[in-house]
Design a protein around this nucleic acid. Structure first.
Length: 943
RNA sequence: GCCCGAGUGGCGGAAUGGCAGACGCGGCGGACUCAAAAUCCGCUGUCCGGAAGGGCGUGUGGGUUCGAAUCCCACCUUGGGCACCA
């Protein structure tokens, strides 16, 4: 019965009382407000003399479903780290804002008629409430939302900075577009057709300039769904080429779109990865996404004109025995001979019906058809047949390849299937033949597969070039590239998989473009004084649905509906004129490309961030350092897109001199995910996970056996557990502690509510050791602790500090539990708790469970917050003991343990071992063949 | 198909070349209680054995080493990512 419980028992109700009390106290006192060196939040005297630390969580979307227990994992981790670092003297900036534009709010608005802003703001309010109750030490003044007009004013401003720039390849940086125009005007840069700048019409000049901007309009291939009136992502298109929603036809076609020239930064985005403190797998994913490949463009003469291919292996050109064109390649018609026409047309029709990822399925057998024509290999002069195959995609390289079956697995399989010639260009090493059980030879008819790697070149010379003196790919590539260039048959080239970023959406709930068009269709920047360009109020947020089968219609986005908004009178230097506004909006990525910068200076109305403030929090920390956020924590799902787009925007801002850091995120840490079990009944319907019982390894719901699966938490799987459930049952401190104790931060793990109670029991024991449960009085006294307890304390301090530095909160918690387990019998026996243990224990606990620590801190007599107390330092003299127990092994197996003096050398250690009666017995009079004695570690006798 | 992770008690995990299983959950036994809950104490990898003690054990099979959960090779399972990228 609750009435029988001690009045000051630490339980959920009591935790709720103190947690809410301290959350209110911290808020009222601005406990976590971080001072800036300059600008509106400047408190220079508080900044002086402290190192800085900028800790950042990935920007959350305020979902209408609210948080489940998986969401705060990273937020708790960064909070523990930030709180720990405050205790070691750092000026820590930690805040959290909301990435609040986006599709779900818009779809909610379409469904309900409620304005997306209303819905978005209530979602944010709910998420703020859930997170506040967690006790996160955020600087609330810095919490911005991308939908704030004061925020997206600067998103638009940055867009205009990018729009107002071009990439100067010679300087390898972005520069203002005015510089480019000045170069044309002065004649230092020739115009494309050689006419003088001043002889061009204004429209001609505009075309030249606009085509070089970092943001530009171009025809780009998209999935156009006229029935929905919008463009769809690949994943929104079904295998049948219809829309997921509404089942309307989808047409793949080119449409005029805003693009961002991220490809201009491809090399820097790859190269600067080397200077970042990121997990290697993430760097690898970015490198692969950018996909830099160095090779050559080679031209093969053919009856239909030259066919250009890109190859990464120009050194194998002598082995190119056929060519393959993508079915969409423009020369296919001209190359197809009359007898082959029906076969080629049929193949092309079949390929057109397939989706790219289907064509990209490597397990699928390669298919193709012969065009009937031959091209000429430019190094051998031989005729090579030209085929069409759907595994070659038009979107990559030139849409045509030279096939070298001896050196490429796909080409090899294709050549075998269609009996095309295979000529070796390199001799594989002997081991290669041995491993495949065939005699070494360069007759590929005996080879079971292609050979890829270094090896002496064979069959690789003509009258003017020979590769046969080379043994490595790199040397041969260089030589072949030189020859191709000297003969005018090709050029060395680098291609990238990365493509420019499609930056327009036919939606309502996004940032409007600060762009207007004149009567000639030329885009102009909206003057800075007129930012932000606000979203117009609308009654209906849906894109205009059109005739579902009209493939050539143009989208009518929601913003186009407001006639008084789309038309605007402006004076852009040519007098007052009428312009029409851009009616697309920006993608959700825009707002998340620079949010970390706004946390630094959230209220600045003069600049997106004060330069001194940016330099302080994010500037380079030494020569060659990129600068950027000191710790960025988030899930691996953003490995490519968000992290690449933000890096790109940041580099543009750096080039234009707006920021001092070259990279936005210096150190990246990928947290794991919390997942959960879900259960389905016989019909495959999810059943409530919290009502499932386990018996003998099987699972039952209402008496019927159900199947268990493991995966995400979600409403539809009926396995959601929310932070609110945890606050009600255990309190925030227990919840925080449990999430941190489940495993290392980077690991994914299953949620198990049943296990949470262990952390609550731990906090109860701590509480009871310091406070009398019946009276609420402190049990802390100034009596000194015993030597043993003091040693346990310092061992704990030493270990916990190291674990916190390395984000190893799970083992830090285990060490704190051990200390408390040592303290418990001590307090039970004496009825009091030594202050010299209670205080450091409270301080060490405070990053993890700040409310209880703050409560204890005040109950034992302190008046100010525990937040800025110094983290305790271990006394080295108390860490060492006089003797140490080490194992004695016989043949590498532990048989016995001996105690030796700390610092004993090999001889002394051996002497102790050999003198021990048990060791003598184990040796049984034999003389060891070998003795391995590692001082301080072990003794091993090999008999 | 390719790339990158991960496989340790009944469960989450600890140990990153030197004592496998810290800490927590669960389970078993005990104390307190009329009883139950809560709390506290003890035990808890597995096999053989009455015990003392011993054998075996980190997905599987090999290898390196005095010594391997840890390093190397091959395979299996599983999670994530994806691009036939020429």
């Amino acid at each position: 019965m609750a009435a029988d419980l001690p009045r000051y028992r630490y339980n959920a109700a009591f935790a709720d009382t103190i947690e809410v009390k301290w959350q209110n106290h911290w808020e009222a006192n601005g406990t976590f407000e971080a001072p800036n060196p300059a600008g509106p939040l400047a408190e220079p005297d508080k900044v002086a003399g402290r190192p800085k630390l900028f800790v950042l969580d990935m920007f959350p979307y305020p979902s209408g479903a609210g948080l489940h227990v998986g969401h705060p994992l990273g937020y708790i981790g960064t909070d523990v780290f930030a709180r720990y670092k405050r205790m070691t003297g750092y000026n820590v900036l930690h805040s959290l804002g909301y990435d609040s534009f986006g599709l779900p709010a818009e779809q909610h608005a379409i469904a309900t008629g409620i304005h997306p802003r209303v819905n978005t703001e209530s979602n944010i309010a709910n998420m703020r409430r859930q997170l506040r109750r967690l006790g996160l030490g955020h600087d609330a003044r810095r919490s911005i939302s991308t939908t704030d007009e004061a925020y997206y004013r600067w998103t638009q401003w940055i867009f205009l900075q990018i729009f107002g720039s071009w990439y100067d390849e010679s300087q390898e940086k972005a520069r203002p577009i005015a510089d480019l125009e000045a170069e044309y005007a002065s004649g230092s840069r020739p115009t494309p057709d050689g006419r003088t700048w001043s002889s061009l019409s204004r429209n001609e000049q505009r075309k030249i300039i606009d085509s070089q901007r970092l943001v530009y309009l171009t025809e780009a291939p998209v999935n156009w769904c006229p029935g929905l009136g919008t463009i769809l992502a690949n994943e929104e298109v079904t295998a049948e080429g219809r829309s997921d929603i509404g089942n309307f036809p989808v047409f793949k076609r080119n449409m005029r779109q805003w693009m961002m020239r991220i490809t201009a930064y491809a090399d820097r985005l790859i190269d600067d990865l080397d200077r970042l403190d990121w997990p290697e797998p993430i760097k690898l994913m970015q490198r692969n996404w950018i996909g830099r490949s160095e090779g050559a463009r080679v031209r093969f003469p053919s009856p239909a004109g030259e066919i250009e291919v890109f190859t990464t292996r120009p050194d194998t050109l002598f082995g190119a025995t056929f060519m393959v064109l993508s079915p969409e390649h423009p020369l296919v018609d001209a190359l197809t001979t009359p007898p082959q026409k029906s076969a080629v047309d049929g193949y092309r029709a079949a390929a057109a019906a397939k989706k790219d990822d289907e064509r990209s399925d490597d397990s699928r057998e390669k298919t193709g058809v012969f065009t009937g024509s031959y091209a000429t290999n430019p190094v051998t002069g031989q005729d090579v047949p030209v085929w069409v195959a759907d595994y070659v995609l038009m979107g990559y390289g030139t849409g045509a390849i030279m096939a070298v079956p001896s050196g490429d697995e796909r080409d090899f399989a294709f050549a075998r299937k269609y009996s095309l010639p295979i000529v070796a260009t390199q001799r594989p090493p002997q081991e290669w033949f041995d491993a495949r059980g065939i005699a070494a030879n360069i007759d590929c008819s005996t080879w079971p597969e292609a050979y890829v790697g270094d090896g002496p070149y064979v069959n690789s010379k003509n009258a003017s070039v020979s590769l046969e003196s080379f043994t490595t790919v790199a040397e041969a590539k260089t030589a072949m590239n030189q020859w191709l260039e000297s003969q005018g048959k090709g050029t060395s080239a680098i291609t990238y998989k990365l493509r420019d970023w499609l930056f327009a959406r036919q939606r309502y709930w996004g940032e409007p473009f600060p762009i207007v068009f004149d009567d000639d269709g030329n885009p102009h920047a909206v003057p800075d004084a007129q930012l932000p360009v606000l979203l117009p109020e609308l009654a209906d947020f849906k894109p205009q649905g059109l005739d579902p089968n009209d493939a050539v219609s143009e989208p009518i986005p929601p913003l186009a509906r407001s006639k008084e908004w789309t038309t605007v009178e402006l004076d852009l230097g040519d007098g007052q004129r009428t312009y029409r506004r851009e009616v697309n909006v920006m993608p959700q990525w825009a707002g998340s490309c620079w949010y970390e910068l706004r946390y630094l200076d959230p209220t600045n109305s003069q600049a997106f961030v004060d330069k001194d403030v940016e330099r302080y929090w994010m500037g380079p920390q030494g020569p060659g350092h990129t600068g950027g956020v000191d710790l960025y924590v988030g899930g691996v799902e953003h490995a490519v897109l968000h992290l690449l787009y933000s890096r790109f925007w940041h580099k543009v801002l750096y080039d234009l001199g707006h920021v001092s850091s070259e990279e936005p995120f210096h150190r990246l840490f990928n947290q794991g995910y919390i997942q959960a079990y879900a259960y389905r009944d016989m019909r495959g319907q999810p059943v409530p996970a919290n009502e499932v019982e386990e018996r003998d390894g099987a699972y039952f719901f209402e008496g019927e056996e159900v199947a268990r699966e493991y995966g995400k938490m979600g409403k539809s799987l009926k396995n959601i557990v929310t932070p609110d459930d945890m606050y009600a049952e255990y309190g925030a401190d227990t919840f925080r502690l449990y999430e941190m104790s489940m495993g290392p931060l980077e690991a994914s793990r299953p949620w198990n509510t049943r296990d949470v109670v262990g952390m609550q029991r731990f906090l109860q024991r701590v509480w009871r050791n310091v406070v009398d449960e019946d009276s609420g009085a402190t049990r802390v006294t100034d009596e000194p602790a015993s030597d043993d307890l003091r040693r346990a304390l310092h061992k704990c301090i030493d270990g916990v500090g190291a674990d916190m530095d390395n984000l190893r909160f799970n083992t830090a918690i285990a060490k704190l539990i051990e200390l408390n387990n040592a303290l418990t019998p001590y307090v039970t026996e004496r009825g009091s708790c030594p202050r010299e243990v209670a205080e450091p224990l409270a301080v060490m606990l405070s990053p993890l469970c700040p409310h209880m620590a703050e409560e204890i801190w005040h109950r034992i007599g302190h008046k100010s917050t525990i937040t800025y107390e110094s983290f305790p330092r271990a006394d080295a003299s108390l860490l060492a003991s006089d003797t140490i127990e080490i194992p004695v092994q016989i043949n590498g197996k532990v048989k016995y343990r001996i105690n030796v003096a700390v610092g004993a050398d090999q001889a002394a250690t051996k002497a102790v071992a050999m003198a021990d009666p048990k060791v003598i017995e184990l040796l049984g009079g034999a003389t060891p063949k070998k003795e391995v004695i590692v001082p301080g570690r072990l003794v091993n006798f090999v008999l």
